[in-house]
Design a protein around this nucleic acid. Sequence first.
DNA 1: CGATATACATACATCGGTGTATGTAAAGAG
DNA 2: CTCTTTACATACACCGATGTATGTATATCG
Lengths: 215, 215
Amino acid sequence: MARNTKSAAKETRRRILDAAERLFFANGVAQTSLEQIAEEAGVTRGAIYWHFADRVALFRAMLEDVRLPQEDMVEQAAACGNPDPLGLLERVACDSLATLAADEQRQRVYAILLFRCEYLGEMADVLQRQQDADTAMQANLARIFTMARDDGALVPQWSPDVAARVFALMMRGLWVDWLRYGRSFDLVAHGAACVEQLFRSFRRAEPAAAPVEAG
Amino acid sequence: MARNTKSAAKETRRRILDAAERLFFANGVAQTSLEQIAEEAGVTRGAIYWHFADRVALFRAMLEDVRLPQEDMVEQAAACGNPDPLGLLERVACDSLATLAADEQRQRVYAILLFRCEYLGEMADVLQRQQDADTAMQANLARIFTMARDDGALVPQWSPDVAARVFALMMRGLWVDWLRYGRSFDLVAHGAACVEQLFRSFRRAEPAAAPVEAG
DNA sequence: CGATATACATACATCGGTGTATGTAAAGAG
DNA sequence: CTCTTTACATACACCGATGTATGTATATCG
């Protein structure tokens, strides 16, 4: 068939990636054939094999387009010399929820990573990327909580490491639950309530106000 | 071939289930053929098709043997009329960590559910079971935290629902992280530190002691 | 304005997996 | 002691998916 111009080829590549994303999300990675992806993208398998070595390469390319929520938080929280570390983190946390809630591509890709693929053999390093992101987030959070403790902002009942861990576990739980169970609750509102009350327990007690209810 | 006695047939069934569990865990559900399972179990595919209708039925049967950590916690925490609900929960939480850490079958099956299968089509109700377990756990925890609030055991900074949610998210995060990342930390010790400090924030402040470090 | 590389489509060979049909020897019922 | 049923093993037919080889029309470059 007619050879496409270079920009048209780029668009073909995009269409393949988008089609793969939709089908991986809808049918799972293992249950999606290159034939189906080609059809969804309006090309043939020849085009896919031209742009990508095989299924795994296609899958990897799809992932490279998206940042994981963990990576997002690390980047956002990098601003360290802040006078109010806990306040910064609290805002970053809520931002991360809003970012995920607003970006459907991110939702699909993260959901694929969480529930629609099996991490084995050639996919092992995909898991590794998530572990690296988690580790980086954990280290970064621990650093910030340590700053908060040194500033006297963190109550002594919480050790910086454990506070960082519980916070990270809660955030990931919120992301995962929301995606796993069909986005059946208001991620931003409900998540904000969790974030706020947890951070309230991190801080020295203020004149007590009534707790915020979940969304 | 020679027909086995009824008890021998039961054992064959067990061997098939065990083989499936090991291979699903090692290679993923989609990447494991019935041929492989048969070989691992020392039988032929004929035996598998005799005992199970197909792969999905085999997978389901494998799951039925095991209780999920969530289901475990719900059962453990059912004892409600306790004078110290928060103390009860704290113990139940640590028990659940110890139970998971001690039972390799449980670890494999839960890991399969989390990272080694794709929830689609005929597998949708498998996800449903997890969602039901999570929902039940959530409801149960909320009830207990409400009791704690009514007893004055829960500080007013935490609403019972949000406290239950954060606690549940943390617990699931601990289970998942431990399994996902190759059990690379001491689940019981590290988990206990998280549980303890979170529950300390739930309770009215005692004469402050130094926080416990993570394991 | 050829020559060549590009961007695919088409065609083919292969293979592993599934489901089912059939064989069969022993267990259990009467 | 037979007859039937059980508990498998064996054999077969049938895709569907993969990978590769090949065709081919057109950009693009010198």
